[in-house]
Amino acid sequence: MTRSYTLYYRSPIGTIEIIGSTKVIRSIMFCEEGEIENLQMMETPMVLIECYNQLNEYFNGHRKQFTFPYEFEGTPFQKSVWNALEKIPYAKIASYKDIASLIGNENAIRAVGNANSKNKLSIVIPCHRIIGSSGKLTGYAGGLWRKEWLLQHEKAIIKNNL
């Protein structure tokens, strides 16, 4: 089994745990402060450092897309949903129904929501850009307040760059 490495990024909306190998990122999730372990940077693979730097650029309003290597682990259906999520432009929103249509399975709205909740690459696979068909914010593993913050952050960056 491939060794896992962990790095923590303190974002404006809480600590993010980054987990990966020497080659790819596998998880970017919000965590509780008490879970943080300090690691020496020289033990940290470059891919984790690049992820950290790109998250920092995102939160500082200088990055809209992520380019570090990552991989998601899930069922073929989950992967199809996550691939569709990647197509949602920065600062835009879509509904679960939109994603179901995008993957060619218009009746899979609940399954799309379930797959969305299993996304381990927060922010990079932008599940925060998914809203209910009523236009209201719905579920987010990091908490609805974070989802709202991320959407407002992206809208503000776009507005300020016009």
Rank of each mutant, 00 (worst) to 15 (best):
S122Y: 04
Y96I: 02
N38F: 01
I28A: 04
P69S: 10
F77G: 00
I125D: 04
L39I: 13
R110S: 11
I123C: 02
I130T: 08
K64P: 01
A115Y: 04
G74T: 07
G74C: 01
G132R: 14
I123S: 04
T15S: 13
K87E: 13
C31I: 05
R110A: 12
P89A: 07
N56H: 13
K155W: 13
K87D: 12
E37I: 04
S80G: 06
L162Y: 13
W82D: 11
G143M: 03
P89S: 06
E73Q: 05
V24D: 15
G74N: 07
H128A: 04
N116L: 14
I28D: 07
T15V: 13
W145H: 15
G14M: 03
P69L: 06
K159M: 13
E50M: 02
N53M: 02
P69F: 04
E71V: 02
S80Y: 00
G61V: 04
S117R: 01
E33V: 02
E17L: 05
I13N: 06
S122A: 14
N38S: 10
F72S: 13
Q40W: 08
N114D: 12
T44F: 00
I99C: 07
S80I: 00
A156R: 11
T15C: 11
E86K: 03
P12F: 01
D98F: 02
M1Q: 11
M1K: 12
E57A: 06
K92Y: 08
V81A: 00
E32I: 14
Y8K: 01
E154R: 01
F59Q: 03
L48E: 00
E33D: 14
I25D: 03
I25W: 01
Q78I: 05
A111C: 03
R129W: 09
P126F: 10
W149C: 10
L55W: 02
N161H: 03
K118S: 12
K136A: 10
V47Y: 08
H128D: 08
Y9M: 08
